[in-house]
């Protein structure tokens, strides 16, 4: 009975479920990417430490920015995304008359950005400050040091937390059904409403979410592994250093 109902729903409503999956993935992926960019900007600026060489104007801007960033992070981490979605969507609807999908992407992006800012900031703090000092001693500016030395390492350090945000977004985008975008939760709710097979429909929905998050985790783990092994191995064979030799033999094994 249960299984036959499930099969019936899949047959009849397969295409609308697929639309839900598509919308969910679009919202989660773009939201994570925009959120990451936002987080890099906010987290990067927050982590900048001005030394005595900074001008008073720079100091003022930095102080002003820090206050803004704090307010932003506090608000968006301290309220539910569902509330943010309805509030922002309706508050701006009269002004910019936007569609629901861009609104949903906007909301999930700035929500993710607040979390990303903190992730990036802790990633930056984990980079040994001696490297920044060395960069400054070579004549590199604060910004050059941040963008060519610190942030690449911070992003790599924080990659597990960053990719976790994507998995979280796949699930949490379900609350955006409150502004009626055609993501998976919204589609499932419509199907359940027209078939009255609530258990079966939501069971299918849960299974789809589980598949999406599992596959996403798997892919992200592979990327993470690959990132950690992209140590350039153009070391000439004349190298006799034992540390390097050990490292190379390990690397060859893992390539098999």
């Amino acid at each position: 009975m249960f299984i036959s109902n499930c099969i019936e729903i899949l047959n009849k409503y397969g295409s609308s479920l697929m639309l839900g999956v598509q919308t969910t993935l679009i919202v989660a992926l773009t939201g994570t990417i925009f959120g990451l960019v936002l987080g890099l900007i906010v987290g990067g600026f927050r982590a900048v430490k001005l030394d005595f060489t900074a001008s008073p104007a720079a100091r003022f801007c930095k102080g002003f920015f820090d206050v803004l960033a704090n307010v932003y992070i506090t608000i968006f981490r301290g309220t539910p995304m569902m509330v943010q979605a309805v509030f922002i969507y309706y508050a701006l609807l009269d002004i910019i008359h936007w569609d629901k999908l861009p609104a949903a992407i906007f909301v999930i992006s700035i929500n993710t950005g607040a979390y990303m800012a903190e992730i990036i900031r802790s990633g930056i703090q984990a980079v040994d400050p001696g490297q920044s000092e060395a960069a400054r001693s070579l004549g590199m500016s604060n910004a050059q040091t941040m963008f060519s030395i610190v942030i690449p390492q911070a992003v790599k350090n924080a990659f597990p937390a960053i990719s976790n945000e994507f998995v979280v977004n796949i699930k949490d985008s379900s609350v955006l059904m409150i502004i009626s975008i055609t993501e998976l939760m919204f589609q499932a709710k419509s199907i359940a409403g027209s078939t009255f097979h609530f258990t079966e429909t939501y069971f299918i929905e849960a299974a789809i979410y589980l598949i999406l998050t599992s596959v996403a985790s798997l892919i992200l783990n592979l990327i993470e592994k690959r990132m950690n092994s992209t140590v350039r191995l153009s070391i000439p064979s004349s190298v006799t250093d034992t540390v390097t030799v050990d490292y190379m033999s390990k690397k060859e094994k893992s390539d098999d």
Partner: peptide
Amino acid sequence: NVNAYRAQVGMCFQQFNLFNNMN
């Protein structure tokens, strides 16, 4: 211009401080 000044002065540290994201 502090950066232009620092570029003329080389410095080596106890902890080497090489950039770990580069070869």
